[in-house]
Amino acid sequence: MPHTNPLPAIGITALGAYAPDKVVTNADFEARLDTNDEWIVSHTGIRERRFVVDGEFSSHLGVRAVEAMLARFPDALEGVDTVVCATATPDALFPATAALIAGQVGLRGAAAFDLSAACSGFVYGCSVAHALVMSGAAKKVLMIGADTLSRIVDQDDRGTAILFGDGAGAVVIGEVPAGYGFESFVLGADSAGADSLYIRCLADRLPSGLNMGQFTGMNGREVFKFAVRVMVESGREAMQKAGLGAQDVDWIIPHQANIRIIQPACERFGIPMDKAVVNLDRYGNTSAASVPLALDEACRDGRIQDGQQVLLVAFGGGLSWAASTLKWYDHAAHLARQAAETEVTA
């Protein structure tokens, strides 16, 4: 019989994140909008968020996230030949924000392109990166989620201004030891919900005929109903594809949109809230940066350990949804163990 090679295990080998220095608290909105800290916290879970300043754009945040990754994983970019940036707020329609980032982090000449799936973008991007490596089209992929939503949200609109912040997260996706890495992906979109969450670019109206204004448009009630449903449905499907049940999940990393979405979703999953990584109180909804910001934080503070089962779930404009399961590969822990074993045998 012909010899067949087993499919490689593909996962995250390094990660980093960055949020701008400018902190915008709920008190800043109290001064000019008909709202207050108590209402914002009780209805969203958000206490503060980060905003870019003049001259700062998504590419700047992406570069900072990569630099944060390199500070912990100095060799992370060795062998990277493709850069993908998930963003709803690119610096320009072209050149790609991914290309702008690549040129500033020493990856000039790498394939580079942007991906638009709004808040689902990071998980979408991980799926694309996984497929590129699995097919042999790429050796290693630098995957970035970066958004500066403060630039496209009407800061005088109480319904949206309080929700969004800016940030970026970066990961390198490549081969990992057998038994680790991504196990399943579920992606989807339904343009029937486009009127509920959108950002204008070139067209002044959607195919439905809805006239779009200058800023982000959102129907909060419809997005809420959609979000809870698709997060649960896609997450369950991803777990089923991987042969997992809710009891097998060590950590869930949900899109950080609203605590009132995360709590019922976890309840329907049967996953306790103490297994959910939540940092939206400090960052708000950072769109494509949301999941990697939370993932990076939970890895840095030691919550996510080598070999643990992680579930990523997100939703966003499109309306889109995405979920993935992976067994976490702690590259730093493996390197430390190898160093200790080498020292013992020396």
Rank of each mutant, 00 (worst) to 15 (best):
A27Q: 15
E67F: 10
G159T: 13
T89P: 09
G284L: 08
T82D: 03
L70Y: 01
P254V: 06
E297M: 14
K139N: 14
A336P: 01
G318R: 00
D250Q: 07
D281R: 08
T89D: 12
G136P: 09
M273W: 09
L132R: 06
G145M: 03
N258T: 12
A194S: 15
L7Q: 14
N219F: 08
D75S: 14
G193E: 03
A265L: 04
R282G: 11
A339Q: 13
I173R: 00
M69W: 02
M212I: 02
V223W: 01
I46E: 06
P6V: 03
G245N: 10
V232C: 09
R108K: 15
G106E: 06
Q305Y: 04
S150F: 08
V278R: 06
A17D: 12
M134A: 11
P90W: 03
D330C: 05
A242S: 13
A92T: 11
A138R: 02
F94E: 14
G245E: 12
G167T: 11
P95V: 13
A288V: 12
K275H: 13
V313R: 07
R205H: 15
M143F: 14
I162F: 11
P207K: 08
L311F: 00
I40M: 08
T345W: 13
R236T: 14
D166K: 02
F73N: 09
Q338K: 10
R303N: 10
A276P: 05
S42L: 05
R300K: 13
T325P: 04
S42G: 12
D190L: 11
V52Y: 00
V228E: 07
L142I: 06
V171A: 03
V186G: 05
Y283H: 15
V230D: 00
L61W: 04
Q309W: 04
S208Y: 10
